[in-house]
């Protein structure tokens, strides 16, 4: 189980990486921590011609609060988030999510940017950050742009990044000290990928996400409306009815566990 041949290019700066990506011939993959890409390459499910290694690029691993946003660099590891480096209530939420991602030895290498750019439907961050709101920053041939997290994950392993763009970080909302959040991941072993995710935050707006679907995570507006109106509990049966109206391709079992996840996320938000 060894990867196919590829060319490894060690990037010294973001500019160099963006240029290299723009000029690359053949399939090119950007390597963050490599904890998702590594296994796929070992299994030869991914066979890039060129790998752009960001591990020596500086400036992508910062965490800073700037007024009403928190900037988190793409190369911030899950472990740093687990260890509480993201401040405030937003940090509490993200710490909870990070702690449940894989195992410490993977969290030490794996990065939040890599996870979101990779867009595995069962991964935590695409769902968790959609529930938080905010935006992705990306650098490409045409400079830096900001992309809303709403709709950023398009489908399995597919995002709104352009072919020549590198995800550089996130601008995330600061949850107020009294803001509620809830996150519920259904899996059978700590650290495993999720079978279902329910994620809820009540910041400036109420956001509720159904995640770990066959495709992209999605916001559930009916639940958000209820939360916005002050409802603090949504039964599993209600969530089932609501989710059933979405075209998520769930069978009965999947519908049930996603409904439980979201119902319990709401419950967790007000616990």
């Amino acid at each position: 189980m060894k990867p196919a041949k590829f060319e490894h290019q060690r990037m010294a700066s973001l500019d160099e990486a963006v240029k290299a990506l723009g000029n690359a011939e053949g399939e090119t993959r950007v390597l963050g921590g490599g904890q998702s890409l590594g296994p796929m390459m070992n299994l030869r499910l991914a066979q890039p011609d060129v790998v752009l290694d960001l591990s020596k690029v500086e400036g992508l691993d910062g965490i800073e609060e700037t007024g009403n946003a928190i900037r988190v660099g793409a190369r911030v590891s899950h472990a740093r988030i687990e260890d509480g480096e993201v401040p405030g209530k937003t940090g509490d939420y993200m710490q909870f999510v990070a702690t449940g991602i894989s195992y410490r030895s993977v969290r030490n290498r794996g990065t939040i940017g890599g996870s979101v750019a990779h867009a595995d439907p069962s991964a935590d961050w695409p769902s968790a950050l959609l529930a938080l709101g905010g935006s992705v920053t990306a650098a490409g041939g045409n400079g830096i742009r900001t992309i809303s997290l709403d709709g950023f994950t398009v489908g399995p392993f597919s995002t709104g990044l352009g072919w020549d763009e590198i995800l550089t970080g996130f601008e995330l909302p600061v949850l107020g000290t009294d803001a509620n959040w809830g996150y519920y991941k259904v899996n059978r072993k700590p650290g495993e990928f999720a079978d279902a995710i329910g994620a809820v935050t009540l910041g400036v707006e109420a956001r509720a996400v159904c995640g770990a679907t066959e495709s992209a995570p999605f916001r559930v507006t009916e639940i958000e409306e209820r939360l916005a109106s002050g409802v603090q509990e949504v039964s599993i049966a209600e969530v089932r009815d609501i989710l059933d109206r979405y075209d998520a391709g769930f069978d009965d079992y999947e519908l049930q566990i996603h409904a439980v996840a979201l119902s319990r996320a709401v419950q967790g938000a007000f616990a």
Partner: peptide, 11 residues
């Protein structure tokens, strides 16, 4: 000479 190269040959 290496497992990786042997896997290349297998493909």
């Amino acid at each position: 000479d290496t497992r990786a190269a042997a896997e290349d040959l297998a493909t």
